[in-house]
Design a protein around this nucleic acid. Structure first.
Length: 228
DNA sequence: AACCTCGTCCTACTTACGTCA
DNA sequence: GCTGACGTAAGTAGGACGAGG
């Protein structure tokens, strides 16, 4: 099936969502002209083109640039009006990915060059980059979400632990006989920040002194379990 | 200088096709 | 063969921005 065959066909694409009124942005019906510009079809400028959106006009202009290879399949063979979908081959995907690694956006020259190499229309290259950026962003959002979830879980655990510790300390305070079993007060070190009782070793004393000298700030993002 | 229009590019959202389990 | 989920190409609306009048 050649480009000429396809480009001569005017295809009416009916968006189901639009028909159902699901999309607030979409018009009820969309007339899609594949391979032909409005000007081509109307035989001149300033007729119907002026009523089209900028994007549509631009798209049609792009399509004029490269229609040398048919990556589309006409759906009119079977009499349906649905659009057929381009599938990029592995080589095309690989080159696009490689290009995306170097720059996630394209200038017009790069777009043209890439389209020429891939034997695609510049508009298709542009769309691929738009969708690729969207996928990258979505993936990053998912990763961020996962990280926040883990931080939240960590903070919840820490909070639970601190509550329990506070409860234990209060219980300890209300139980005088237990004082008898504790070491002399002078040997106890209490963390001024978390109010935990430290041990009597040199290291814990040192830690306590350090805590006095320099209050520690807990950053769950850099050190989720850094508290004491 | 301030404004308006136009063209272009982008994002966000959506639709619809192809594939696969 | 049918079906639902998923990935993705493509359509659309609207905003931002620069150029030119």
């Amino acid at each position: 099936m050649g480009v000429e065959e396809e480009s001569c066909q005017t295809r009416l694409v009916l968006g189901l969502g639009s028909i159902r009124g699901e999309s607030k942005k979409s018009p009820p019906l969309t007339l899609s002209l594949f391979g032909e510009t409005i000007d081509d079809l109307c035989g001149g400028q300033d007729s119907a083109a002026s009523s089209l959106s900028n994007a549509s006009v631009k798209r049609e202009r792009d399509e004029e640039v490269d229609d040398t290879e048919d990556h589309r399949v006409s759906s009119d063979d079977d009499g349906s009006n649905g659009r057929k979908k381009l599938r990029l081959n592995k080589a095309q995907s690989a080159l696009l990915e490689e290009s995306f690694k170097h720059h996630s956006t394209l200038n017009p020259k790069q777009k043209q060059e890439l389209a020429r190499k891939l034997k695609l229309r510049p508009r298709q290259v542009e769309v691929w980059f738009q969708n690729r950026r969207a996928r990258t962003k979505l993936k990053q959002t998912e990763l961020d979400c996962e990280l926040l979830k883990r931080c939240c879980e960590s903070l919840t655990d820490e909070n639970r632990r601190l509550h329990k510790e506070l409860h234990d300390l209060k219980a300890l305070k209300l139980a005088p006989p237990l004082y008898m079993h504790l070491p002399p007060a002078a040997t106890l070190a209490i963390c001024p920040t978390c109010e935990r009782i430290g041990g009597t070793t040199a290291s814990s004393e040192k830690a306590a002194k350090t805590s006095f000298a320099k209050p520690h700030f807990y950053n769950p993002f850099t050190n989720p379990s850094a508290a004491c």
